[in-house]
Design a protein around this nucleic acid. Structure first.
Lengths: 209, 209
DNA sequence: TATTTAGATGAAGAAAGCTTCAGGTTTGGA
DNA sequence: TCCAAACCTGAAGCTTTCTTCATCTAAATA
């Protein structure tokens, strides 16, 4: 086994006492804060530790390296989104396309805007090579579930369910991103939700044979 | 004036001989290549210069710093997209919503996929703080033009042209990104073009009063 | 209470990158 | 041909960051 190629990203130690669990939480939150306020280029392990109120050594006790810290954060976030989408697909099984559109957009928006700060901050992380891999996994999970859902459609089936699923998912992701990156205002958010529903519904219905 | 705050991003020197113009071109292309093959974290000025076949010193003769190099690349790319969108809006003025949908998606896809390598590579750049600023400027230009276009719609006007413009633009961006980041295959591209047109047309028509 | 285990600390080693600049080469005009 | 301007070079200074580890403190356990 090559020495350099093998790089573990597993946590070095799992917290067993309450004290250390708090440290880990503080570190994760601090990472989001630093990402938002300083940007990814200025994110250093020392700075994160400082803001979390712990020492660098503590950080390295739970995360083997800086990259693992960022990946853990991104994975947790995207897993949440994928979970939400799968749940929504299960709930919408057999419904009409219009209902599917509503449930899917609701689930996506809720999941993505649940922790707005993290969502915004993590865009900076998702473009690293490893970040892209994680994002892709999430897309695969979601679009698989959506494809299966479309096949179960109550009225007029969709000719190319996979393609439609991927397109719709990307579109929702794009619209959310556009909004998150240009600053979310409470009022605008409700409007976006509506637009996204309109978009999803009209696209799905247009895709039905 | 603060010493640190003032940072110029203007080129240090403008090429006047053919030799230097070639160097600049080589550097820009090399940047894309390094970005694609090594990723942004491993992109160093030395590596870029090496791949371009020049020395670091030469690089710094035309770009005041690493950030300026990346920004120049991103700006050129996004300016191209914004130009294309404005042109398409001018061409579609007064047409039907369906025609608008087709012209807008065509323009966007053509511009974005004109230089696929650069498009893919530059996603990694667009998430830096300065990159986001540049991306925002492009979005503003495009959505302004689109808003004006929608107001000129031949049949049934759109109630909230600005919101619809921003939503559609983000959706197109999202779908393109999804495709570019998961690897473009020639066949799939034509399909995506169709899906995007369907999406745009159905969304625009659904948004008409 | 004594002992062991978990957790925390932060100075410092090591590595890497950005940027400069003094000096060399090429080009184009006079 | 000769000179000035444009262009190129790359070793090295300076800074920054990651990561380790010997040492200390707190908690749990017997």
């Amino acid at each position: 086994m090559s020495k350099t190629a093998l790089q573990t990203f597993e946590p070095r130690k799992t917290p067993v006492q309450a004290r250390s669990a708090a440290s880990v939480q503080a570190i994760l939150q601090a990472t989001v804060q630093v990402l938002l306020q300083e940007g990814k280029v200025k994110l250093t392990t020392t700075r994160v530790a400082q803001r979390a109120g712990v020492s660098v050594g503590t950080l390295y006790q739970y995360f083997p390296n800086k990259s693992a810290l960022l990946q853990a954060l991104l994975k947790a976030h995207l897993d949440g989104v994928a979970d939400a989408m799968e749940k929504a697909c299960a709930a919408a099984h057999g419904a009409s396309l219009a209902t599917m559109a509503e449930l899917l957009t609701s689930a996506f928006v809720d999941a993505k805007f649940h922790d707005i700060e993290a969502s915004v901050a993590l865009y900076a992380v998702s473009d690293d090579v490893e970040g892209q891999r994680i994002a892709r996994q999430m897309r695969v999970r979601a679009s698989k579930a959506m494809t299966a859902l479309f096949k179960s459609a109550y009225t007029g089936g969709i000719a190319e369910p996979t393609r439609v699923a991927e397109t719709l998912l990307s579109a929702m992701a794009g619209v959310s991103r556009g909004m998150l990156e240009s600053g979310v205002k409470p009022g605008t958010m409700a409007a976006m939700r509506r637009e996204l529903t309109v978009l999803a519904r009209s696209y799905l219905c247009a895709s039905a044979e």
